[in-house]
């Protein structure tokens, strides 16, 4: 059985662990039926694209916002690294974030 690897929890992070039925088309992680959001994405990838209609995607968005805000408030970079690299990957530039907010490069007509 392949377990669902979606991160759950707010303060105490964990993996879902329910039997997976699909994979995220963006990052490839295994997903159970409850964690498939719009477009078949995992909650983290959906949150990175600002698609927070699914409760799990909304929870992922709130959790990430809170960790990011409090790591700055506490000046504690280690607090944000409580996420593993797998959790952070969808939010890496170019990996899944909204392309409109990315750097257009030095040869772009307008620097957005």
């Amino acid at each position: 059985m392949t377990p669902c690897t979606v991160t759950t929890g707010f303060f105490t992070l964990g993996k879902c662990g329910v039997m997976a039925v699909a994979g995220c088309p963006s990052c490839g992680r295994a997903l159970c039926a409850n964690h498939i959001t719009e477009g078949g994405l995992c909650p983290e990838c959906a949150a990175a694209r600002n698609q927070v209609g699914h409760p799990a995607a909304a929870a992922a968005y709130r959790r990430r916002t809170h960790r990011h805000r409090t790591s700055q408030e506490y000046s504690d970079a280690g607090w944000y690294t409580g996420f593993d690299s797998y959790d952070r990957a969808p939010f890496d530039p170019g990996a899944g974030a909204n392309q409109d907010y990315l750097d257009d490069g030095s040869d772009a007509l307008v620097d957005s």
Binding site: F11, T12, Y74
Partner: peptide, 14 residues
């Protein structure tokens, strides 16, 4: 958040 920074591993059993 502060009490949770005192434990290095905040990963529980899902």
């Amino acid at each position: 958040t502060e009490p949770f920074r005192w434990t290095s591993e905040n990963r529980g059993i899902a």
